[in-house]
Simulated assay, not measured.
Amino acid sequence: MVTEGNHEIETIPIIQPHAFRSYNARWPMPYNESGSTSNLYYSFEVANVHIIMLGSYTDFDEHSKQYKWLQSDLVKIDRKSTPWVIVLLHAPWYNTNEAHEGEGEEMRQAMEALLYEARVDLVFSGHVHAYERFTRIYDNNADSCGPLYVTIGDGGNREGLALTFKKPPNPLSLYREPSFGHGRLRMVNETHAHWTWHRNNDSNTFVADNVWMKSLSSLKECWKFGHEEL
């Protein structure tokens, strides 16, 4: 299951003026099933997880189709059957690397409140060729009821690693490293999950970062104000 990045835009004036033509042809996702009208954003469920794939490179303001679809999708989530909600997108909303700094800011300002009000548990992004894990955040502040943000763009490509993180470190950023690696998310049960990041050292793998997470659906204190009690 995939979502688009900047390398998939592929606009060529006159010859191919429409963005994502090759991407949409080669990577058809089941967007209709989630009520989306675009292959660039959709949702699906695996076991006890509701997964939302957002499009960083299509319209996302409050008048856009993607914004309205996201609103309707979040409202339909049943946290009793899918207590975990995870969002994936390409350009990170939070990033302390000098590479691609601020590129996800407009989308964050437009959509972050929707994710916060729905108590999304975890947001994964790529784009920056490095690894970074933040604390739970809402509107640039630590918030125990906000999503935990992870940038895992460390698979790399011809551009190489994004080596330069800003100094001094932002207190919201708990771990950051410009190394090649991969992550593993293990959903243990309805309330707990375990995330590990593995640094790739040639033929060896090394767990450099890990964190246990508790689903926000299980935290009563995050559902007190204007939210239906679970």
Rank of each mutant, 00 (worst) to 15 (best):
V2A: 01
E4P: 04
N6W: 04
N6A: 03
I12W: 12
P13V: 08
I14Q: 04
I15P: 00
Q16T: 08
Q16H: 07
H18V: 12
H18I: 11
A19E: 00
F20E: 06
S22N: 13
R26A: 07
R26H: 06
N32M: 11
E33L: 05
S34A: 14
S38R: 13
Y42Q: 01
S43E: 06
V46E: 09
V46Q: 05
A47L: 09
G55S: 15
Y57N: 01
F60H: 03
D61K: 07
H63M: 11
K68V: 10
K68H: 15
L70H: 02
L70S: 13
Q71F: 02
Q71Y: 07
S72E: 07
D73H: 02
D73L: 04
L74G: 13
D78W: 01
K80A: 09
L88I: 11
L88S: 13
L88N: 13
A91L: 05
P92W: 03
W93T: 09
W93M: 06
Y94G: 09
N95Q: 04
E98P: 00
E98H: 15
E101S: 08
E103A: 12
E103S: 13
E103W: 15
G104L: 11
G104M: 05
E105N: 12
E105A: 09
E106L: 15
E106N: 15
E106C: 08
M107P: 04
M107S: 06
M107Y: 09
R108V: 10
Q109M: 07
Q109D: 11
Q109T: 10
A110K: 09
Y116V: 14
E117Y: 14
V120C: 09
F124W: 12
A130G: 14
T135I: 10
R136V: 00
I137V: 03
Y138S: 08
N141L: 11
N141S: 14
A142E: 05
A142V: 10
D143S: 03
S144A: 10
P147R: 02
P147H: 02
Y149W: 11
V150I: 07
G153Q: 03
D154S: 14
G156E: 12
N157R: 06
R158Y: 13
R158L: 13
E159I: 02
G160T: 00
A162Y: 05
A162F: 11
L163G: 03
P169F: 10
N170R: 12
L172D: 02
L174Q: 13
R176V: 08
R176W: 12
P178L: 11
S179A: 13
G181T: 11
R184H: 07
V188T: 05
N189W: 07
N189L: 01
N189Q: 08
E190R: 06
W195P: 01
W195G: 05
W195K: 00
W197F: 07
R199C: 00
R199V: 03
R199M: 10
N200G: 00
N201A: 10
S203T: 12
T205M: 09
F206R: 01
D209N: 08
K214N: 03
S215F: 09
L216G: 02
S217V: 12
S218Q: 06
K220C: 12
C222T: 01
G226Y: 14
E229K: 13
